[in-house]
Amino acid sequence: MSELQQRQIQLEVLRYNPETDTAPRYQTYSVPCLEEWVVLDALNYIKDHLDPTLSYRWSCHMAVCGSCGMMVNGEPKLACKAFIHEYKEGQIKVEPMANFPIERDLVTSVEDFITKLASVKPYLIPKEDKPVSAGEFKQTPAELKKFKQYTLCINCMLCYAACPQYALVPEFLGPAAISMAHRYNQDSRDGGRDQRQEVIASDEGVWECSFVGACSEVCPKHVDPAGALQQIKVASTIDWYKEHLMPWMKK
């Protein structure tokens, strides 16, 4: 195995501390990066060796906790999965996630997302009551496959940072929250679709989506929120026809 390559990178990092700054500014740090590093490693180098005042969130360093979403050269990325070797230029620009208020430096507010996630009832509303003592609900691998992809969302919110509609209409429920509603709607054990429909088929729900598909492009877990939104639109349209043209039919 080859020796590890090192390269000096200029990290241009957005800084903002509401206590001391009137406006965001940029600060450049020169970091000796190993090629196998990710941007997060470079930030940790800065924190440990150059500037302890830089603030950002991180934990797992394996793209599963969803803490370290930020803009890397203008693209929404997990800092722990933005590989230095993919940035051939000697300079990388790091900014907080777009479309969210900055708390400080690279830390943005999570509250809006959490509120929206909670609003879609992202939990199983069982079709039938069954005590735990009666054992598990049966679910075939095929039934699992129908929703499995949508369970993979790590709530990193990169899709919101990429979504042009969320940028324009902050009330929009957004890709991750709607995908999570779809995840439960598609679960063979669930009977809660009608309860969720109120929120996700509302003006702030799926109909806000202009189907640009940026959410699916940036998703680090390949959840494909755009696909979920399209499926919901189709299903909601069918609901509308059933309700208005064939009122004798049940949804």
């Binding site: 199983l124 691998p141 699992l144």
Partner: peptide
């Protein structure tokens, strides 16, 4: 673990639908 299944945990399944 069964309680978690009732709360929706997507456990991998056997062909017959059991966990």
């Amino acid at each position: 673990l069964t309680q978690l299944e009732h709360w929706g945990c997507p456990w991998s399944r056997e062909a017959d639908g059991s966990v």
